[in-house]
Amino acid sequence: MRRTQFLVPAVVLLVVLSGCVGTDALTLESSPASIPDTALTDADYEPGESRSVVVERQLGVAGTEANVTLVGWLSSYARSDGGASVVLLSTPNPSVAGVSANPLAGETNDELVERLLGLSNQVSGDSVGELRRVGETERTILGEQATVVTYEGTVKANNLSVDGSAAQSNESVPVRFHVATVSHGDDVVVALAMHPADLDEQETLLSLFERIEHEG
């Protein structure tokens, strides 16, 4: 059975709102979310990149504009053969004058997966289409009951390895996505897993979700 080398998309959140007023800006940083090495070894996954992610927002507070810079953390993991991947994103979730300053807080899973996949589409060689919601399940993530929503879609890939050869640019590969959002402490943690639809990897990926660690 053909397998596609499924690359981890470089999900970059950069939201810049222009016209900032005032000289002082509030900067908040989240704690990184991660999957412990023991869980990765058991599932035959390997750590990838870990980097900071900057989100800048401008909020109206008491009749003035407040500049808020949110520093989050993105970590990625991939199956040893490249056949599946997990992306974890943690961002601060402050409340300014009763309004959440986190652009991810309050979004539905549908909106959230569209946002993340839309950003990953900017990576050269990846294009996600025909996204549809196909199911959901409950899992315990960071001590909380969380809904994991599953989507199916297709990826049009350039320069992706398929059975050792490059995929054609117009070839569509069926894929599955699993996404969950958890508020933990002062942060919002988003977990996104991806794998080819013909790869039976869902339970392994969801078990990794349940092993996520984060200092709230």
Rank of each mutant, 00 (worst) to 15 (best):
Arg3Cys: 05
Thr4Pro: 01
Leu7Asp: 11
Val8Glu: 12
Val11Ala: 07
Leu14Ala: 15
Val15Phe: 11
Gly19Pro: 02
Gly19Phe: 11
Cys20Trp: 08
Leu28Thr: 11
Ser31Thr: 14
Ser31Gln: 13
Pro32Met: 05
Pro32Tyr: 02
Pro36Ala: 14
Leu40Val: 06
Asp42Thr: 15
Asp44Glu: 13
Glu46Val: 14
Gly48Glu: 02
Arg57Thr: 10
Leu59Ser: 04
Leu59Cys: 05
Val68Ile: 11
Val71Met: 09
Val71Gly: 03
Gly72Arg: 02
Gly83Glu: 09
Gly83Met: 09
Ala84Trp: 13
Val86Ile: 15
Leu89Arg: 02
Ser90Asn: 05
Pro92Thr: 01
Asn93Tyr: 03
Val96Pro: 00
Ala97Ile: 06
Val99Arg: 13
Gly106Asn: 04
Glu107Asp: 12
Val113Glu: 07
Arg115Pro: 01
Leu117Met: 12
Ser120Lys: 01
Leu131Asp: 04
Arg132Lys: 15
Val134Trp: 11
Gly135Glu: 06
Thr137Lys: 11
Leu142Met: 06
Gly143Lys: 04
Val148Cys: 11
Thr150Arg: 14
Thr150Val: 11
Glu152His: 13
Thr154Cys: 00
Val155Tyr: 11
Gly164Ser: 09
Ala167Cys: 07
Gln168Glu: 07
Glu171Gly: 01
Ser172Glu: 14
Val173Arg: 08
Val175His: 08
Arg176Leu: 14
Val190Ile: 15
Ala191Tyr: 07
Ala191Asn: 07
Met194Cys: 06
Pro196Val: 12
Asp198Glu: 15
Glu201Asn: 08
Glu201Val: 03
Glu203Ser: 14
Thr204Tyr: 01
Leu205Gln: 13
Leu206Ile: 12
Ser207Gly: 10
Leu208Gln: 03
Leu208Met: 05
Glu213Asp: 12
His214Lys: 08
Glu215Phe: 00
